[in-house]
Simulated assay, not measured.
Amino acid sequence: MTRIDDPAGAYLAAVGTALPGEPVDNATLGRLLGVSEEWIDIFVGTRARYFAWDLETGEVRRTLVDLCAEAGARALESAGLEAADIEFVVLSTATPDALLPTTATQVADRLGLDHLPVYQLQAGCSGAVQALDLGRSLLAGGAGAGLVLGGDVTARHLDVRRDPARMPTEELVNYVLFGDGAGAAVLTDEPLGERVAVRGVLNSFAGLGRPAGQTVDWYGVSDRHSERPMLAEDYKAIEESVPAMAVEIFWELLDRVGWSTADVDHLLPPQLSERMTARIVEHMAIPSVHEVSCVSDTGNTGNALPFLQLERLLPQLADGQRAIGVTVESSKWIKTGFALEKV
C-alpha cells in the first residue's frame, strides 16, 4: 500500500554538522597508502575526506559521540531551541562507538537531554532518512520538537597497520572512499527557523532475494582474529543498480507528493563518491534542476551525508522552492528519499 503523505506536520528548523580535524587530500592519503593520486581519482574522484583517527598511528582522536554531540549542539543553537524543548532523539549509524551504551544515549547525555525517548537505528546510507521518517512519526504522535542525527567513524574498519600492497583493490578503495563526520537536524511540528516542510519521505526495503552489495562486519571475542575483511563491496552490483534505483526513488517521491519534474528546484543525489554521483545524476537526466552535492570535499561519510547536503542546500532554498533528496543503501538494497519545500 502506498502511503499518502500529510503535506503538513513536520518541518526542518535547522541543521548542524561536524567534520573532524583537517581535510586529508589525495596526495597525503596516496603517500600513506603507497598509491598515486591518479589511482584515487580514477576509482572515486573524491578530492578530500576527514578522519577522526590519526593516519599514522590509528589513534582515535574524536569519537562518534563527540561528532554527533557537536552537530546536535550546532543544530539546536541554529534553531534557537534549548535542551528542554527537545522531546525525542533518533540517531542512525553503521559504526557505533560501542554496542552498549548506545551512541544515541551518550549523545543525549552530552547535550543535557533527559526523560525523553532515545532511539538508535543501525543503518548505512539510508539511515538519515530512516531517522527522519521515525522523527515525523513521533511528531505526528504529539511531540513538538525532536533531534535526528546521523554519523559514522571508520576507525574500527580501516586498519592503517596493514600493508596496502597486499590488499585487494576492492578493499583498498575503502581507504580512499570513506571519511568521518556527523550531522543533525531539529524537527518541529510547526514552521520554525528555516521553515522547511517535509512533504514526503520514502523508506523501502528492496532487497528480497538479492545478495548484499555491501557488508560491514563486526568481530567479537571468539572471531577477532578472523581473516574476513571488515568492509566488503560488490562494486559491479553497485555501479549497475544504484543509478537505476535513484531514478526509481525520484519518480516514486514525485508521485507520492503530487509534483512534476518542473516543480523541483534542487536535487540532492546519492553521495557514494564524486565519480559515482556524477554518473547517477547523468543517468537521472532531470533538466533545469540544481544539484547539491558534497562528497568530493567530505568523502563518503555514510549517515552524515544527507545532513551535509542539507547544510549546503538551506542557504540556497528560497521561499516556495522545492527539493528532492535521494539515497540508496547497497548493503541489502534500501531505497530512501525525501521531498522538501520552503514555506
Rank of each mutant, 00 (worst) to 15 (best):
M1G: 15
M1I: 11
D5E: 11
D5I: 00
Y11W: 15
A13V: 10
A14K: 06
G16L: 10
T17F: 06
L19I: 06
L19S: 08
P20D: 01
G21H: 13
T28M: 11
G30W: 10
R31L: 13
L33E: 09
L33I: 03
G34H: 05
G34E: 04
V35Q: 02
E37Q: 14
D41G: 13
V44Y: 01
G45M: 06
R47F: 00
A48N: 12
R49M: 09
R49P: 07
F51R: 14
D54I: 02
G58H: 04
R62M: 02
T63V: 05
V65E: 14
V65W: 00
D66K: 11
A69W: 05
A71K: 08
R74L: 08
L76C: 14
L76Y: 01
A79Y: 05
F88R: 06
V89P: 09
L91P: 06
L91D: 04
S92G: 15
T95I: 03
A98D: 13
A98C: 07
L100I: 12
P101W: 03
P101N: 07
P101Y: 04
T102C: 10
T103G: 08
T103E: 09
A108N: 08
D109E: 12
D109I: 00
R110Y: 01
L111E: 04
L116Y: 10
Y119T: 15
A123C: 08
G124H: 02
C125I: 01
L132C: 03
D133S: 14
G135Q: 11
L138V: 09
G146A: 11
L147Q: 08
V148D: 05
V148C: 09
L149E: 04
G150W: 08
V153E: 02
R156C: 01
H157T: 12
H157Q: 04
D159M: 09
D159A: 08
V160F: 03
R162A: 14
P164L: 07
P164D: 04
L172Y: 03
L172R: 15
N174I: 00
V176K: 05
L177S: 12
D180P: 07
A182R: 08
A185T: 04
P191Y: 07
G193Y: 03
G193D: 05
E194G: 01
R199P: 03
V201Q: 06
N203Q: 12
N203D: 13
A206K: 12
L208W: 05
P211V: 08
P211S: 13
Q214P: 00
V216L: 15
W218H: 10
V221C: 00
R224G: 03
R224I: 02
R228C: 00
A232D: 01
Y235G: 15
A237H: 01
A244D: 08
M245N: 04
M245C: 07
E248F: 00
F250R: 11
F250A: 10
L254V: 02
R256L: 09
R256A: 15
G258F: 02
D265N: 14
H266R: 04
Q271N: 03
E274C: 08
E274A: 14
R279N: 04
I280F: 00
I280H: 03
M284R: 03
I286A: 01
P287R: 07
C294R: 14
V295T: 14
V295K: 08
V295E: 11
S296T: 13
N300Q: 12
N300V: 02
T301D: 02
N303M: 01
Q309P: 06
Q316C: 05
R322K: 15
I324L: 14
G325F: 02
S331T: 15
K335M: 05
G337A: 10
F338N: 00
L340I: 10
E341H: 05
